[in-house]
């Protein structure tokens, strides 16, 4: 259960997010839609603890991550949240396998090489494990980014424009993947321009305009 209260983000004197209140339940599939510049990425970065709000709070059950010391936010994110960036943010010179390692190295629980390969297999990139990421196609890179986000088996997956760089066929693949992950009981929050996400069964559609939200019912 995530409780977002009075969330506000101000850059210099520009108000990017304005008094957002939202509850997200375990197992929700939240789709945030909205025009470019409306604040979707900023919102995701704050609820994942990648940046701090100017005002307001984000609470996971009883933990207010907006107030947590930096090192604890890291630990929390490492075990509880998987994040997929709009631009993937992969280490281009490293191989697929090496790109999965950062969350694993500092994880509290033990994740074996076998676990990683099973995950790669699930995304059909196990045969690419030794290939440098910069040699991969956009769709393959997207799957590496997803695998990295999911390797520690987090309860929450947050994805920023996960289909933006993909063609029609890959787009459907990624959406299927999200559906599967959701089906396994994980909570998902996606920011997207892509209407296809609104058609997912059981998805909560939230519109964001100028830093304010309105939920479609």
């Amino acid at each position: 259960m995530i409780e977002i209260r009075h969330l506000t983000k101000i850059y210099d004197d520009k108000i990017v997010l304005q008094n957002i209140n939202l509850d997200i339940n375990n197992g929700d599939f939240v789709v945030i839609m909205g025009p470019s510049g409306s604040g979707k990425s900023t919102f995701l970065s704050i609820i994942s603890g990648l940046s701090r709000p100017t005002e307001g709070s984000v609470c996971y059950d009883d933990i207010n991550i907006s107030k947590l010391p930096e090192s604890d936010v890291g630990k929390f994110r490492n075990s509880k949240i998987g994040f997929v960036f709009q631009k993937f943010n992969l280490m281009e010179n490293l191989t697929v396998y090496e790109n999965i390692l950062p969350p694993v190295i500092i994880a509290e629980k033990k994740i074996t090489k076998k676990d990683i390969f099973e995950l790669l297999k699930r995304f059909e990139i196990d045969n690419l494990s030794d290939v440098k990421v910069k040699r991969l196609s956009g769709g393959e890179q997207q799957r590496v980014a997803l695998a990295r986000a999911l390797v520690n088996d987090p309860e929450l997956l947050i994805a920023d424009e996960p289909t933006a760089n993909l063609d029609y066929r890959l787009k459907n693949e990624v959406i299927d993947t999200f559906k599967k992950i959701h089906y396994q009981g994980k909570t998902i929050i996606v920011a997207t321009h892509d209407r296809v996400f609104t058609e997912i069964e059981g998805a909560r559609i939230i519109n964001m305009i100028n830093g304010k939200i309105a939920e479609m019912v």
């Binding site: 930096e70 090192s71 890291g74 490492n78 994040f83 943010n89 280490m91 010179n93 950062p102 500092i106």
Partner: peptide, 19 residues
């Protein structure tokens, strides 16, 4: 830029500043 991105990725996946 490469080094910056590396640091960002590490932080994003939960590394602390000290790590």
């Amino acid at each position: 830029e490469t080094e910056k991105l590396e640091i960002g990725v590490l932080k994003a996946t939960g590394w602390t500043t000290s790590d």
